[in-house]
Amino acid sequence: MNNRIEIKKLTKHYETFFLDDVSFKVPKGYITGFIGPNGSGKTTTIKSILSLIHQYKGTILYNGQDICGENKSYVEDIGIVMDSTFLAKDWTIKNVERAMSVGYSNWDQHQFEDYLKVFEIDQTLKVKELSRGMNTKLMLAIAFSHQAKTLILDEPTSGLDPIIRDEFREILQAYVEDEEHTVLFSTHITQDLEAIADYIVFIQGGKIYFTGSVDDFLNRYVIVKAGLDEADTIEASAIIGSRQYHTRFEAMILREDLPKISDHWIVEKPTIDQIMVFHKRGNN
């Protein structure tokens, strides 16, 4: 079993948005970054994996088993850090501990207490009194204390300061040192992924644009720059996204289309952020 999660032709319609034949795999033992602009379908996909959404077409496999059944015990194997904590706002940390010990069959109270100390979470505070960063750490402490083999993180680092984000990345890297552990990390803050992700799934407008290793993703595209007077020399069909300044022009194209432009264009390797931005901009 090489894939922890496998999504096949996931389609979900809303009035203003739809997921269109989304298919990708989350390999076991690695960190997979799930990237895309806001509103691209990341959270809908994640909610489908967690069975929070169930009226969709397509198949989702967890450890090779179809999740579309009455038995949802597979979710216990997943640690979740989402934008919202799902914890009652008036709960104290003690209440959180009690609720988790009721909910998770393999809950380890001592481990939770240890993580609270490691993450320096003030146990006298209520959930609503915790900062955004502390809430994220609390969810991580919960995830690690019920022996989750998979971590699904939905925008966990948005709103966190760089120090906590760096700390967070270290925690994830330590987590995947165990080959049984897998991470699916959805974010639009792509610097986090460039540092730690092994694979990338890129979604935009409900469609998957890329799925593969980070290196392949970054090597797939190039950014080319030239003077504005040379802009017309590039084939429009090759341009994925472009940007025009007063005197210069830059575009993102597939690396394989490089021979289509003249030698004196400046060629640069894009960042994940730039790939997303150019994809979104299109060729205007």
Binding site: L50, S51, L52, E70, K72, S73, Y74, V75, E76, I78, I80, S84, T85, F86, L87, A88, K89, A99, G103, Y104, V127
Partner: peptide, 18 residues
């Protein structure tokens, strides 16, 4: 009410409760 406010229904699903 707490379900509306904090989303504990989602938590119950995450616990794998039908």
């Amino acid at each position: 009410f707490v379900g509306d406010e904090s989303g504990i229904d989602a938590l119950y699903k995450i616990f794998g409760i039908q």
